[in-house]
Amino acid sequence: MSVVVERSPVPSWLSDRITNRHLVAIGVGWVTFFFVFPVLFLVVESINFGDGHPLQAYQRAMGGVYLAAFVRSFLYGIVTTLVTLALAYALAYYLVFSSKRVRLLLTLVVVPLWIAYIIRYFGVLLFFSPTGPLAQSFGIETDLLFTTTAVIIGLANAYLPFAVLPIYNSLNAIHHETINASRTLGAGQLRTIYSVVLPLSMPGVVAAGVIVFILSAGSFLGPDILGGSGQSMIANEIARAFLEAFNIQLASALAVIYTILLIGFIAIFNAVFDLQEALGNL
């Protein structure tokens, strides 16, 4: 391979001054200016500078439908995480220990990640719709649409690939000798899974759980497309306050509360596990 040495397009007086720390500053600066500042600006937007209590939006945000939406986001997030982890563990376990076509099967897990969420929720909607292809072709009619079950199914469907990858990686890293030793020492397969494989794969399970919880608790499209008014999660209430009630103060207050709760959750997690490593698995 011939290497054509090009003249440097940047004058040397400039290139000599750019250090790696400057590169960090440019990258972090871009995200700070166009993401961190806007999110911090919501704090200003959430405060009432007119008549009444400065924090009146917060008083409203912590009661009634909004409190219910916060609780629902948390509960739906937990349930979705548990369902997704169970499915992901079974799948990852099969891929690592029993499958002969790991590459193909892993690709099939990743394929849905390439496709827009809205299309995947639309597919779940079609699945349950009384005028959908299932009902039309097979006469299978469900009353699931616009229920909590439908929302959980949709969320689990959307975020399952995010859970499979970290669990697959942690299972794949287990040395076969360890499992061998357990079997040689007389443990049955279930005992081996319970006492050896499961503990060793915990980092992957925790990483997967955190990712799925963060994504599902903050989901807008899942409850919007598959749920009814009784399934409204916090993202839906924020959007409604902003787009329908034009109450920017309330929408901002809800966003600030949710972001603080989420960052608190991540900080606790980060103290125990490495979030970066978890996200790096994707």
Binding site: V28, V31, P38, G218, I238, I248, A255, Q276
Partner: peptide, 29 residues
């Protein structure tokens, strides 16, 4: 440099914060 790991989390924030919040924060800003 010190706190490098913590600082790099900023680069990942846009994938952690709910996109609804990202949307309203950006359009107001």
């Amino acid at each position: 440099f010190p706190y490098k790991q913590q600082l790099s989390t900023i680069m990942l924030l846009p994938m952690i914060i709910s996109p609804v919040i990202t949307g309203i924060a950006l359009i107001r800003y």
